[in-house]
Simulated scan of single mutants.
Amino acid sequence: ALFESGAILIYLASKTGRFIPADTAGRYETLQWIMFQMGGIGPMFGQLGFFHTFAGKEYEDKRPRDRYVAESKRLLGVLDQRLQGRDWVMGDEYTIADIAILPWVRNLVGFYGAGDLVEFSQFKNVARVLEAFVARPAVVKGLTIPAA
């Protein structure tokens, strides 16, 4: 049995030979971005979502929420810089890094409704790549499962 989404993505990419570069340098650079999502984007966006959308919004003390807003903006800035002049996180090639990162970005601005809070409109490269991501046929199909 295998758990944790990053480990599952790495396993599937290795097993199928898809969505991860074959060369050693490209492979480890992709894994680096998987770790960026696992250690940064997932936890920070998730905490921001809690404090903005769920029970945390009732807390009088806004410092926890503001801390996650600031860190989420920093992470979006790192990602935006990485995507400058690139189609995907790894350049021309769509990889497990995109599969790990972009759903969190989508949920941050969509499900959690925190786009204005993190000033998402300033992250033009992230917005551009997110738009391309949600237009991919497999993503479109996946977003309809289960059917509403």
Rank of each mutant, 00 (worst) to 15 (best):
I10Q: 12
F133C: 00
Q32P: 09
R82I: 03
M90G: 05
G85T: 03
V139M: 11
I34T: 07
A55Y: 11
L130M: 12
Q32V: 00
F3V: 15
F111W: 15
D61Y: 15
K62E: 06
E119K: 03
Y94F: 02
K57E: 09
M35H: 04
E4D: 03
F50L: 09
N125I: 03
G142A: 05
L108Q: 06
N125R: 07
Y112W: 15
F19L: 12
M44N: 14
R136H: 12
G40K: 04
D23F: 04
Q84L: 11
G142K: 10
E60C: 05
D116P: 07
I101Y: 06
A13W: 09
L31R: 11
V78D: 11
A127Q: 01
M38N: 08
P137W: 06
L83D: 04
F3Q: 09
T30S: 10
D61I: 04
G142D: 08
L102R: 09
R128W: 00
A127T: 02
R128E: 00
I34Q: 02
I20N: 09
A132P: 07
I145M: 06
R18A: 14
F51R: 01
R27N: 14
L48T: 00
T144K: 14
L76E: 02
A100D: 03
A97R: 04
F54R: 03
E29H: 10
G91W: 11
F54Q: 14
Y94W: 01
L76A: 04
P64Y: 01
D61E: 08
V109A: 07
G113E: 12
T30G: 12
A7Y: 13
F111G: 02
Y112N: 12
E119G: 12
K62M: 06
A148N: 07
D116N: 13
Y112V: 13
V78T: 03
A148P: 14
A70Q: 09
P64E: 00
G26N: 04
G113I: 13
E119D: 15
L9P: 06
Y11C: 08
Q32T: 13
G49S: 08
V134I: 13
L102V: 04
A97G: 09
Q81G: 01
T53L: 09
R136P: 11
P103S: 06
A127C: 00
D80Q: 01
K141P: 04
A1V: 15
Y11T: 04
A100Q: 06
Q84G: 05
E93S: 15
S14Y: 12
A135Y: 11
W88K: 10
I34G: 07
A127N: 06
L48A: 05
E4T: 13
V129S: 05
A97C: 12
R65H: 10
D66W: 01
R86G: 08
Q47M: 01
F111D: 03
D87F: 01
F123G: 01
A135H: 13
Q37G: 15
I20V: 14
I20R: 13
E60M: 11
A147C: 10
P43K: 08
Q122I: 11
V78K: 07
Y112S: 13
I8V: 15
R74G: 00
D61H: 11
M44Q: 14
Y68P: 02
Q37H: 10
K15T: 13
L130T: 03
R18H: 03
D98G: 05
A97V: 06
